[in-house]
Design a protein around this nucleic acid. Sequence first.
RNA 1: GUGAGUGUAGCGCAAUUGGUUAGAGCUUCGGAUUGUGGUUCCGGCGGUUGAGGGUUCAAGUCCCUUCACUCACCCCA
Length: 418
Amino acid sequence: MAAINAPRGTRDILPSESWKWSHIIKTASETMMDFGFSEVHLPIFEHTELFSRGVGETTDIVEKEMYTFNDRGGRSITLRPEATAGVMRAAIENNLCVQGASAKIWNWGPMFRHERPQKGRYRQFYQIDAECLGIASAMADVEVIALSIEIFRRLGLKNLEVVINSVGCEKCRPVYRQKLIDYFSSHKSELCETCLTRLERNPLRILDCKNESCGRVADNAPDIFDSLCSECREHFAEVRAGLERLGFTYTLNKRLVRGLDYYTKTAYEILSGDLGSQNAVAGGGRYDNLASAIGGGKIPGVGFACGLDRVALVMEQQGCSFGKMPNTDVYVASLGDDSRGAVQILTYELRKNNIRSECDTSGKSFKSQMKIAGTCKFACIIGADEIANNTVSVKNLSDGSQVNIPVNEAVNYLKENL
RNA sequence: GUGAGUGUAGCGCAAUUGGUUAGAGCUUCGGAUUGUGGUUCCGGCGGUUGAGGGUUCAAGUCCCUUCACUCACCCCA
């Protein structure tokens, strides 16, 4: 019978890699706490409507990338393609932002998009996500950007580029949108096929097109900053001032357009040159219209998502430290089958006392057990002599020294010498 | 969805222009005067060469199909 393999775009994070992920999550978690963000656990699937209304009907995500199916009750369900819509839904549903209250929450977990896999892109991928809800001030934008930068700083990532832009709000974006339509309409012959459809559905996205010809046309396109309303202009200036106040360097990219409809005002990405073509390790921005789009009234928000898979990739590439690899400290070896019971008892005793211990459970020879013990710091050896005297021989495997001590002193001895 | 590249042992690889029984290394397992690991030495396990078909006296090698993986486009984390 043919073996079954993991579906395309999914993969197994095995022990050799998972401990590195744990380090990243732990670092992110500590940083989140330092910034006043609390962790939440949310559903991995939601009603399809949440994303079609929240993320936007004409976005790539909703149009062609969602894992959508009908459940047994006939409801249309979608595996979350991104985190923000779900977070906002939860905030609304649980009244986290009523009466002027705000919420700073983070979570991490798998997201799902049906795309062709490539370097740094999977169909099931993992994001660390932080959202600051209920605060309209630019200071919140700065805080969120600073948070993402701080996580990367602690992880030791190098050569990152912070790119920011403003995409306007519901007042000024339609104005800019119309300007773009007017402009690009007079250059239709120079646009690629997909951009021609974007012209009608989402003209801002033409700015982001990497097609050479479209790029040339976009170079001379109307500047978004000329169209920003005074509020958006001021907000963006405050964000920039805040970033500079904290000493961050960033670049301005007027062509940075997020693929999700809910973004307003601030949009930003953090890029790494050590990834392949998919070079964003984090991206986010402000989304003051998301709440109303999913029926939750006016709740401003700003946040970011960070690609865990990609962060791990960059760290590996740059030789960053993942901390100490977890290892067994003590191996308890049985010399002769008669001592296997005593070995099991001692091993359990060590484990109850938080000493990372291992013993053989498969009937290996003493020699084999000692071979495995070689990767540990200490070996506890129990044979006929030890049983007779109620002792254990403890061998320091780094210098080869060995002592024979009463079994009931093993825990203290090891705790003192580990 | 489109394009390009790659599929040989658990892993990374080798195999003259198509030519005997597809090979080492690492890993793993076992052993080297019966109570002591890392180094060393010896040995064992391990493959329908991704799958299917075709050309040929002969295919890991050439052709077709298919599957998988990788990278890129699109877009994003």
